[in-house]
Amino acid sequence: MAKVTNILLAGVGGQGILLASEVLSEVLMLAGYDVKKNEIHGMSQRGGSVSSHVRFGEKVYSPIIPEGEADMLFGFELLETYRNLPFLKKGGQVIVNRLQLMPPSVATGMERYPENLEQLIADQVSDSQVVDGLELAIEAGNARTVNIALLGALANKLDIEQNLWIQAMEKMVPAKFLSQNLKAFELGRQAAN
């Protein structure tokens, strides 16, 4: 079977993962691939764990990534990235945002947020990279562009023409935030170089 590439996006409801994966899938379609994407809405919104599966290649069957076959784990939050490591295939890549969001049991003092997650990820996955999305977003002039800044970092790992990314963002990002998002995207690209 022709090779299918699997990208797993993981983070927390409200982080803009949905928009990031929408832009990503649109770009992949424009680049001529067959694309499938899946995520669970509903209960997962209100601050719960969220993951989005994006698969592309010549022909994609399952809309969800087979367990242990993600080529790339693209994490928006440290704990959620670490949680999803078992999805990654041997030799896969990790890009992770340097951010800790407290789950309810931690925020209410019942449990502690696990320490050294950056290190734990790096210890296991040799091809891993940490990006500070918030710093980039603030530099781009809008703290809410973290998701697109991170997408910029991901774009570096994919062989897709720049103009397709811009075309997709023009279509999917609200016009009044477009220039800030384009800037964040560029900064993300540079950061991951």
Partner: peptide
């Protein structure tokens, strides 16, 4: 199935919240 990578510590869950 045996995953290539594992999480060695128990992780706090993140259920949805109001």
């Amino acid at each position: 199935m045996v995953p290539a990578y594992t999480t060695e510590i128990t992780l706090p869950n993140r259920p949805p919240n109001m």
